[in-house]
């Protein structure tokens, strides 16, 4: 199952002209990807220079004044930015945990459904929200959680609440609401890959377990979970870098003045303080910082995975 097998002997083949010729098509295809990567991923990095300047539209990258680390200093002495890092990481982690757990749970439940039609139907319906844009989802969420919305109506009718709660007036509800929105939108979609993994588990394992008298729960615990383990870890490593991409649209569209101390993320900060106030350098500095956090997290998690002897990316 390992992506990289360290125990395999390193085979060093000599690169011959004939070899190059034989693989020429592959090389050309690979070269195209390399060129694509350079143009679209590496060349734009030149723009990072803006973070060390006071960038003006007129001067451009080569004509603007160099100011060293001024904007990074500004960021880390700014209370707002420090709070925004907290919001971003908190929402990123909550979202990651919530969407992963629900997706796995949902995939397992779905795999236990024996009726093929029911299974297909539920699966199709569950991943449809993935295709809705956030602007649509947030209007639904905003409506559902409003004082006259269905959530309040439900809670009041069930006598859990006496009077409706104004969910968007209190900071403590915001992160859970964002997590719920993410779960509602992405659970079905995220479950697909886990479901595929479960399908690929050798059915004879289940048959053998049944022969030994294992019940459903024991089969899930001892066969399905271990079967999913490597997929979960690879996906976690890949997603951990995204923790800092906690979102932009959801928070931007669901937030309001009362909630801004918990709703603003780094992306919103870049838009408001950078692009919106024509301070592109500040925006770039915040973006550069974000990238570094992302990379650090990926390396860190990969390292931990390696140490504990699990799957890893590189």
């Amino acid at each position: 199952m390992s992506l990289m097998n360290p125990s395999a002997p390193a085979l060093k083949e000599k690169t011959t002209k004939a070899e190059i010729k034989r693989q020429s098509v592959l090389l050309i295809i690979a070269a195209l990807y390399v060129v694509y990567g350079i143009i679209f991923y590496y060349l734009p990095l030149v723009g990072w220079l803006m973070a060390f300047q006071t960038y003006t539209l007129k001067g451009g990258i080569f004509g603007s004044e160099w100011v060293g680390l001024k904007w990074f200093k500004f960021l880390f002495t700014d209370d707002t930015f420090v709070r925004i890092i907290r919001n971003t990481l908190a929402m990123g982690v909550i979202n990651l945990v919530a969407t992963t757990v629900t997706a796995i749970g949902f995939a397992i439940l779905l795999s236990e459904v024996k009726n093929i039609w029911g299974k297909k139907l539920v699966q199709t319906i569950s991943y449809l929200p993935h295709f809705l844009s956030w602007i649509v989802v947030t209007s639904i969420v905003h409506e559902a959680f409003s004082t006259e919305g269905m959530i309040n109506e439900l809670l009041v009718n069930l006598h859990i609440l006496k009077t409706p709660i104004s969910f968007f007036s209190h900071t403590q509800y915001f992160w859970p609401i964002v997590a719920i929105s993410n779960v509602w939108k992405e659970t079905g979609w995220n479950a697909i890959i886990y479901l595929a993994t479960i399908t690929s588990i050798d059915p004879s394992l289940y048959e053998a377990a049944a022969m030994d008298g294992a019940g459903r729960w024991q089969k899930i615990k001892h066969i399905t979970f271990p079967g999913l383990r490597s997929t979960i870890i690879i996906l976690l490593i890949m997603n951990i870098g995204n923790v800092i991409n906690a979102g932009f649209e959801v928070q931007y569209l669901l937030g309001n003045g009362l909630l801004q101390s918990v709703s603003q993320t780094i992306d919103i900060y870049v838009l408001k303080y950078g692009v919106g106030k024509m301070n592109y350098s500040l925006g770039t500095a915040a973006g550069v910082f974000k990238t570094f956090v992302s990379m650090t997290l990926i390396f860190l998690f990969n390292f931990i995975a390696k140490k504990t002897g699990d799957e890893r990316l590189f």
Binding site: H142, S146, T147, S166, F168, S169, N256, G257, L258
Partner: peptide
């Protein structure tokens, strides 16, 4: 309006 602060 009780929702004045949160209305879009």
């Amino acid at each position: 309006d009780p929702n004045f602060a949160i209305q879009t």
